[in-house]
Design a binder for these strands. Structure first.
Lengths: 140, 140
DNA sequence: GTAAAATCTGCAACTTAGTTGCATATTTTA
DNA sequence: TAAAATATGCAACTAAGTTGCAGATTTTAC
């Protein structure tokens, strides 16, 4: 019964007009079973170290993203920008807006977003961060 | 009249029991005038290339963060985790929860957060992403 | 089923972010 | 102003992510 996830992955690849390769199928299946987003390093490790070249994994992910089957989730790790601690509480800071045109990031200190509630059982939420994407006045 | 921001920066450093060094004052002032978070590379560039070693900038930021004067904002760039596109709309995906204990990231597909409204004049918000931090059941 | 066309994959080599150890320079304290 | 405390710069390193290209795999068309 290994079939069902496998077939689903293949069907999705076909629908997206992508070649059904071992690596793509493996990554789609892996992401399908994973409860959260994974990095290239995590994917490589979970598929069995050395199974696939890291370049292949990056390129595979790129094609899956372009096809809309997969998308990037932002994760704190290695995202190191700094700002003053003004107007920031323990639990939440203002949202940050990044313009998809020019790439500039702005603080939206005037907006506040309610904190998430109803975390799954057993999870304790301590902090929330919100990122917005769109166009700034000069790029709109 | 260069004084006011400068004095404020120095006062903050003193209050935090940090040495008032040229680099710290410069970075605090820079972040004070900046409308958004900056990376090490951007800071180096804006302070005049070669003025400070990158190691110094990283260490300065680290001490400012530890003192609570500055904090890290997450920015998409270089945060490359991937997941299936299930349950994700154009405008918003489910929140992601990262455990500060074990570092694992989970998708909270059951929660939804209202989209930000009232963007500053001229900005157009196209997409919103929410990150949560806290403790997972095994680490709580 | 098979050959040609289209597309992937792996390898080597590279770029850039971020870190560590240590000697020297700067700031603070007394 | 000297000694103690702490920051800084440099060199060398690790690890993520990218590019070009040759060889391998998948698909298409017959």
């Amino acid at each position: 019964m290994k079939g069902s996830l496998d077939n689903e992955a293949r069907a999705n690849l076909r629908a997206a007009k992508l070649y059904c390769t071992r690596c793509r199928v493996a990554i789609l299946k892996l992401l399908g079973r994973s409860g959260g987003p994974l990095s290239q390093v995590q994917i490589a490790r979970k598929l069995g170290g050395g199974q696939y070249d890291k370049v292949t994994i990056y390129r595979t992910l790129e094609s899956l993203v372009n096809a809309g089957l997969v998308h990037k989730a932002f994760v704190q790790e290695r995202a190191w920008h700094f700002e003053l601690s003004d107007n920031c509480t323990e639990r939440q800071c203002h949202p940050h807006f990044t313009c998809t045109g020019c790439g500039e990031t702005h603080c939206f200190t005037g907006i506040s977003i309610p904190m998430a509630e109803h975390a799954p059982k057993g999870f304790r939420i301590q902090r929330q961060q919100v990122r917005l994407e769109g166009l700034c006045p000069s790029c709109a």
